[in-house]
Write a protein that binds this DNA or RNA. Structure first.
Length: 432
RNA sequence: GUGAGUGUAGCUCAGUGGUUAGAGCGCCGGACUGUGGCUCCGGAAGUCGGGGGUUCGAAUCCCCUCACUCACCCCA
């Protein structure tokens, strides 16, 4: 039988790597909750129109990257390409501003985009998503950015950079796009095909262009922050002042306009050089019109999405991440001892220890070898000698020292041995 | 959707027209019959990504195809 491989752009995360994921997720959860954010889980499938309206018809995500199908009831269903519209929907659908004192939400899980896979990019990928609704004040922009920056630094990721910009609002943007088109003038014909299209549909996104020949022209274009209205200018100044309060350094990037339609005012990204072409660890911004556009009250929103794959890739090699290993390996010699070993393993597990037994009743040599490979710090050895004396031989696998102890004292012995055999640094993924 | 590179054992790879396709690591067993790590010995394991073609003969050359990787586009 030929094997059936995983779908393109999807992958299995196996033991050995999963610990790094659990570490990232655990650090993120604890950090978000320290900041007062509550977890929400939304469905992975949504109506197509949620993203058509929420993410935006003109975006690449909606135009060519969505997994959409018609279900048996004739409904157009989409596998979510991002989480923000779902969280906005949940916020609106459940009137969360009435339910929650402060609508600060986070969620994590898989997203789907039909793209060609490459380093740090998959068709099923995973994001950590954080959103706050209904706060106008610029201090929340800074808090969200501080949260994002803290996530990266608490994971021990080195060499990242914060990019910041403001893309204005419906008041000032028309004047800016007019100025942009005017400044382009005849040069528009010298830009690449994509940019010529953008000039007509969404001129802001010309700043996304990376075609070398276009760069000289783009560098001469006006900047959004020079065309902000008074309110947007004041807001942006506040954001910068608060960031200085937090001691977070940033670089203003005039070209950070971002691909999604809904952004207003603040946009930001955290980049890292070590990931190759897909260098954005996370990105986000403010979206003041989105909640209303999705049928809710006129409330502001701000948030960011971080790519878990990319965070995991950016994790330092020497991150102290505990690998799963038993506390005790129980080795048995002979059938009678094996029966007793089963009892002992069950007893240790019930007492909260990670205990394992050889699954196939092989030679003692093989069992000790397995204990070694599992990196068990302790081995409990049971044979006829031990059975007749009602004892267990405890072996310290690091030193090779062995002691005979009474059968009834094994639990206590393991409990006392644990602190001294456990490694000093244990990041303790989850579910201890 | 476009371009380039790579597909040989579980993993990393050697083998570029000539016997039954190899190595290292890993795995299983033994030397060591109740004890892991070191050493030595033995063993299992491959439709050489798939299909077609050239040839007396193909892992090797040609064509097609699939997958993976990286990059473009765009994004997390």
């Amino acid at each position: 039988m030929p094997m059936i491989p995983a779908v393109r752009g999807t992958r299995d995360i196996l033991p050995g790597e999963i610990e790094r994921w659990q570490f990232v997720e655990d650090v993120a959860r604890r950090l978000f909750e320290r900041y007062g954010y509550a977890e929400v889980r939304t469905p992975i499938i949504e109506r197509e129109e949620l993203f058509a309206k929420g993410t935006g018809d003109t975006t690449d995500i909606v135009q060519k990257e969505m997994y959409t199908f018609t279900d048996k009831g004739g409904e157009r269903i989409t596998l979510r390409p991002e989480a923000t519209p779902s969280l906005v929907r949940a916020f609106v659908e459940h009137s969360l501003e009435q339910q929650m004192a402060v609508p600060k939400l986070y969620c994590l899980g898989p997203m789907f985009r039909y793209e060609r896979p490459q380093k740090g990019r998959y068709r099923q990928f995973h994001q950590l998503d954080v959103e706050v609704f209904g706060v106008h004040d610029a201090w929340i922009d800074a808090e969200i950015i501080d949260l994002a920056w803290s996530l990266v630094s608490e994971l021990g990721i080195q060499g990242s950079e914060l990019l910041l910009n403001s893309v204005g609002c419906p008041v000032c943007r028309p004047a800016f796009t007019a100025a942009l088109v005017a400044a382009l003038g005849e040069d528009v014909k010298r830009l690449c095909g994509d940019c010529q299209r953008r000039a007509a549909t969404n001129p802001l996104r010309i700043f996304d262009c990376k075609v070398p020949a276009d760069q000289a022209i783009i560098d001469r274009l006006p900047h959004t922050i020079d065309y902000l209205c008074a309110a947007c200018t004041a807001h942006f100044d506040q954001v910068k002042r608060h960031l200085e309060l937090y001691g977070i350094s940033y670089r203003i990037s005039h070209r950070l306009v971002r691909g999604l339609d809904y952004y207003t005012r603040t946009t930001f990204e955290i980049l890292i050089g070590s990931l190759g072409a897909q260098n954005a660890l996370l990105g986000g911004g403010r979206y003041n019109g989105l909640v209303k556009a999705l049928g809710g009250p006129d409330r502001t929103g701000i948030g960011f999405a971080a790519g878990i794959e990319r965070l995991v890739l950016a994790l330092p090699e020497d991150a102290s991440i505990a690998i799963a290993r038993p506390d005790v390996f129980v080795a048995a010699i002979g059938d009678a001892a094996r029966l007793e070993a089963v009892r002992l393993v069950k007893q240790l597990r019930s007492a909260g220890f990670k205990a394992q037994l050889d699954d196939e009743g092989r030679s003692i040599r093989s069992q000790m070898k397995t204990a070694d490979r599992l990196k068990a710090p302790l081995a409990a050895i049971l044979g006829d000698n031990e059975l007749t004396k009602n004892e267990v031989t405890m072996r310290d696998m690091a030193s090779g020292e062995q002691t005979s102890i009474g059968r009834a004292d094994v639990g206590e012995y393991v409990r006392l041995a644990m602190p001294r055999v456990k490694p000093p640094l244990e990041a303790a993924p989850r579910g201890q």
